[in-house]
Design a protein around this nucleic acid. Sequence first.
RNA 1: GGCAGGGUGGCCAAGUGGUAAGGCAGAGGUCUGCAAAAUCUCCAUCGCGAGUUCGAUUCUCGCCCCUGCCUCCA
Length: 462
Amino acid sequence: MSLQLYNSLEGKKQEFIPLEEGKVGMYVCGVTVYDYCHVGHARVMIVFDVMYRWLKQSGYDVNYIRNFTDVDDKIIARAAERNIDIQVLTNEMIAEFHKDMDALGCLRPSLEPRATTHMPAMITMIESLIKHGNAYVSDSGDVLYAVRSFEGYGKLSGKNIDDLESGSRVDVDESKRDTLDFVLWKKAKAGEPSWDSPWGEGRPGWHIECSAMSCEHLGHTFDIHGGGMDLKFPHHENEIAQACASNDGQFARYWLHNGFVNINAEKMSKSLGNFFSIREVLKKYHPEVLRMFILGTHYRSPLDFSDSALDVAKAGLDRLYETKRRLKKIGINELIPAFITNDVFEKAMNDDFNTPEALAKVFSLNKEINKRMDAGLDVFDDDLLIKFSTMLGLLAIVKVDADGWFQGVDSDLVSAIENLIVERAVAKKSRDFARADAIRDALAVQGIVLEDSATGTTWKRG
RNA sequence: GGCAGGGUGGCCAAGUGGUAAGGCAGAGGUCUGCAAAAUCUCCAUCGCGAGUUCGAUUCUCGCCCCUGCCUCCA
């Protein structure tokens, strides 16, 4: 089955046919680097990371571009607050962003362009827009995009200009020809970072950054453009207006939008203040738990964030790690992916990246492997293990050592526990079950759970 | 007001024109000194109403409810 993608531009699933056979150009809107990222950001990064992995697995040579917005109002304000140069701030936040992404197991994109190093591309695009009559210099000195000059405006978001205006919450700006016109180039105010341009010192508007950077690195027409649902309008709509009007081309062919992370059925966002930063969550939960939590729901659906939801994700992951641990006990220490999946998993992934369905197949395989172990059968049959590990690898979960997963790394505690297990084994051998149970109970109070088996006793944190 | 996306078992969440994956929780069995883990079995008629159809949770229409976008936002 070929890859089907839900294309926001058409509002339906379509077969994915790349522009150039065997190659995929994919652009994903990254973050504005002025603060730590929250779980909402984690979702985009993880969801597109899995898409990236699957496209590569499917044999495509993927050029994956994800930008950094490293100049904007919030960055300037935050830098001023901290009394540092914006570049100090953005460099710091990019480093922190990378820490989060590495922790979450997200592969680095092919390229992570920064807005501030792409001024010529943006200026060229703005010049072209002015030349084509799509942009104008306003009385205030800003360069604005004339929304009504672009015929297809609103196609992506399914809106039309008149509807937008009637419900518009935009402040009326006298220098705009139309209230929906947006800034391409912002005239510099005193003390703000600025770049030289044909319209004087200033800085780019947010939307032009992504149009210019995506075209610069992927060409005017490319395959996939992704990002959060909230960027659909106006950001992506504006990107299309800019790129198409300046080049008469098609721009991105497939638009993919992921759903939000909610808290109590309400969108997690900076402005509502109901957000959890990634690092905050990682203090309590292993990064794979967050990954499991996110992949347990289809990428386009809303996802409700809570501790109990993370607990459920962890319980599922525990189940997979129990299997990995059993395998380790019979001498299979490493799960080596060999890029063989099974048909149902492949079908799920090809169906618009249906990771919950794919995960269901992982659990089915998990059960199958355990059944074979219970029956004393060969787990290598039918490439069972290879499929299992490939699937886990593609989702980038169950990557750490199984004992480490359950036991942690405090070596003093580990040896203390292991001494008690030896003592208990002696007690059990002499049928002193009272003593054996006392040891088990004492450990249980500390949250340590013992598990006996024919081959000995193991333990984990409960 | 306009537009978009939803309402599936106790919770989460897939899916399909012919009577519903998977996970968590729960009940019972096997295993175990007893547990735990694993495994087996059990546990839903898919928001409401109408229509199309031999047959709808899945298509159409109406209604109710929820969320998002329309300002910066992943």
